[in-house]
Design a protein around this nucleic acid. Structure first.
Length: 112
DNA sequence: TCCGTGACGCGAT
DNA sequence: CATCGCGCCACGG
């Protein structure tokens, strides 16, 4: 077939990465991009979340735990996170306690 | 082909 | 703490 817009491998990695975020935890666009192997791909993460469905989009926030979605979407995200047990401090998620750290497969000698 | 846009990140003011 | 500006990446008109 011709080629119907094939999803670049980058997007696939981003999706896979986002799906590893456990319930009750969050991550940031930049962190997800880095975990996917794209140091400056925060915008790509945004695109991926907007285009793909079925992803836990509400578990991805902006740097510092800030909700980057304007309007009701942002409130929706906040409710969903609180429903999972995530606590907020003002308008930001308490990253120090709920940010999910992606496993760094560099090779610290342990379960790679 | 060039330009603008976006659920971003970070430093500077 | 609030704003602004610049850099990054991919896509659409």
């Amino acid at each position: 077939m011709a080629k119907a817009k094939q999803p670049n491998p980058k997007f696939q990695r981003i999706r896979a990465t986002i799906m590893t975020i456990p319930r009750g935890h969050v991550s940031s666009y930049g962190a997800v991009a880095r975990a996917a192997g794209i140091p400056r791909g925060a915008r790509l993460v945004v695109r991926t979340l907007s285009q793909s469905h079925g992803l836990p989009w509400h578990r991805v926030v902006a740097a510092g735990g800030r909700i980057a979605i304007p309007g009701e979407g942002g409130l929706d995200q906040r409710f969903r996170l609180e429903m999972e047990g995530v606590k907020f401090s003002g308008k930001k998620v308490r990253m120090a306690e709920f940010e999910f750290k992606f496993p760094k497969r560099k090779k610290p000698r342990q379960s790679p």
